[in-house]
Amino acid sequence: MSEFESAPASTPLLAVENLHKTFDMHALGDKRVVGLEDVSFAVERGEFLAVVGESGSGKSSLLKCLYRTYEPSSGRVLYAGPNGTVDLASCDDRTVIDLRTKAIGYTSQFLDEIPRVPAVDVVARPLHEGGMAVDAARERAEMLLSRLRLPEALWEAYPATFSGGERQRVNLAQAIAPKPRLLLLDEPTSALDPETRAAAIDLLREFLDDGTTIVGVFHNRDVVEAVADRVVVLEDARVREIGPVEAFDREVIA
């Protein structure tokens, strides 16, 4: 396939190059909003890169561009997959769908509404659809929900009736369950209590040890300090600086 180029093993898992995103709001007199401007950085395999910055600095836009929920206006997002490198900014929609199914997970603080699907099935179904046996999928879903401290009484209930924190646990469990190679997390712990946040951190650490690469926005600095390797700071849609987590003042990553 033309969109694949072979990549040496030393290349980063993700290389973002000169990424731009503008929104043209035709209904608002063609007002142009800049979401990202000339953003470049790389993410190594097994690394956890935290994206920080004030609200409106472009953090969510960045993650959505990486997942192609937003279509980048220009620039490249080179993902080094097992079958070669794919430019997520320009590859065709079916390639994106395929990668989302097999390799790239995403979760935001908002849970997609799936009517009348019990919490455990929200997590287990994609696993089953991905080829896992029904029982094994269910077992894994229950394990993750239990690790994320969702009360067992809620496993068979519909997330539409849950509190924000409960929904977020289902959301996070669903995103991480297939063990994606790349996880994009947009404030997945914002509504969690401290104990559950700690449980989520433990889980993410295990995933990192297993080789998952994570790019995440967290509004709790304890999460960033506990698991991030490096930090990229966004300001006014641009990268202000990027470096190891130790190099930053606590105020920056809060």
Partner: peptide, 21 residues
Amino acid sequence: SGLTDRIMEDPHHEYTQTLIN
């Protein structure tokens, strides 16, 4: 035309933007 979530969250055409808004 495009990925459904892209159409919903980043509609490009004026009509799609109006429809979603």
